[in-house]
Design a protein around this nucleic acid. Structure first.
Lengths: 201, 201
DNA sequence: CGCGTTATTGATTAGGCTCAATAAGGGTGG
DNA sequence: CCACCCTTATTGAGCCTAATCAATAACGCG
């Protein structure tokens, strides 16, 4: 799929998709997760070659819009072009934060950070105690965090024992949002314009 | 500097600049390096808030162009807007590759990969044996790779002993480009449009 | 020459990986 | 409904990479 021409922009209607890089035969790294309302392959408008592969992490439904239509839209409504630029910026900010997460935080914090980001992006933060649907396998979590699947398991157990969060049957339960944020060194600043990054619900 | 309004796009005329994130008081992560001919803060055209800080890694000279002028330019020459989009894409591809580098490669390979990227981006690859100017301190290398400064030192020594590269007085010498690429698991595909990402020399 | 930064090296610790084995789900076909 | 199989989760043991702590040497500069 790498190197393929991309001919359309894709909107995620439901489910989860991921940008996956395969640096070698045996390693996979998830470099972005797209949720309901997110758009990917927007960059294909400018550079019609896939830098990476997009996969569905769960059952997902999507809508594809041909690049030609997008270009036409941009020409008619200049604000659309501006929105694209903003959106690309947002994506880049999230990728940079992932770089920090994968590179510099220890396992528990990295996982906690991922859950914090998802909770905020999904708009599921509601009070200090809440839960949300996030049905990734531990192997998928390991590909997103750069950890081994085994260590993901142990770290999730550790977070659970500490009462920071628990994950079961695809649901993440956060009993103490403030504590989780603290444990993850999470600051949502980089997600500020996320509301603007979701086009549908 | 984070959160400051950005009012201009910056072109690097000479030297090296870096995008630095500070996730906590004691940790610094370099998430991008800009070389002669690169541009940064382009995204500020769309989202006038600094997602991170830019620092000079070496003595550097730069040119700033106010965003207003850039917007005007985009309006007059639609191709400019398209070039911006392409440029942002290129930046994003490099950041994603750094994510893989920092997250998944072991120390020697991560360092080697960084040198490979820089050699290619600087256009200094010339035959199988060559050298180029890259005056980063080991501490700066550690901030770029997510390693400790001590381990950067040891890993550089290891690369040197294996004849993959040597670094001294700000010069990187590559005796065997093919061997270095192999050791770094380097594939320049993600840099493909780099030539288009440099506006000056 | 003296001082601060940078580089180098050693010793120890710790976080995370690998290998390995077991348990628990979750579908599918009979 | 049950047997089967494959994926996913859990737990243990040992190893290994890289971090930390610490001390010394080498620069580079005023």
């Amino acid at each position: 799929v790498i190197g393929d021409a991309i001919t359309s922009v894709t909107l995620v209607l439901d489910g989860l998709c991921a940008r996956v890089d395969m640096p070698s035969e045996d390693r996979r790294q998830i470099t972005a997760i797209y949720i309901k309302g997110n758009v990917f392959d927007l960059g294909g408008i400018f550079e019609p070659e896939a830098p990476a592969t997009i996969e569905a992490l769960t059952d997902a439904s999507i809508v594809r819009v041909p690049h030609g239509d997008m270009r036409a839209l941009m020409r008619v409504y200049p604000a659309v072009a501006e929105a694209f630029g903003r959106y690309l910026m947002g994506d880049a900010a999230i990728t940079a934060e992932w770089l920090i997460n994968v590179g510099g935080r220890e396992a528990r914090a990295a996982l906690a950070h991922l859950f914090c980001e998802m909770a905020v992006r999904m708009g599921r933060v509601d009070g200090n105690s809440f839960s949300f649907h996030f049905p990734l396998s531990q192997m998928q979590l390991s590909e997103a965090t750069g950890l081994s699947a085994v260590h993901v398991n142990r770290s999730l157990g550790s977070l659970r024992r500490d009462g920071l969060m628990r994950m079961a049957h695809g649901m993440v339960q956060v009993p103490d949002w403030e504590a989780l944020k603290r444990g993850a060194h999470f600051n949502s600043r980089y997600l500020a314009p996320e509301s603007a990054r979701r086009f549908a619900h």
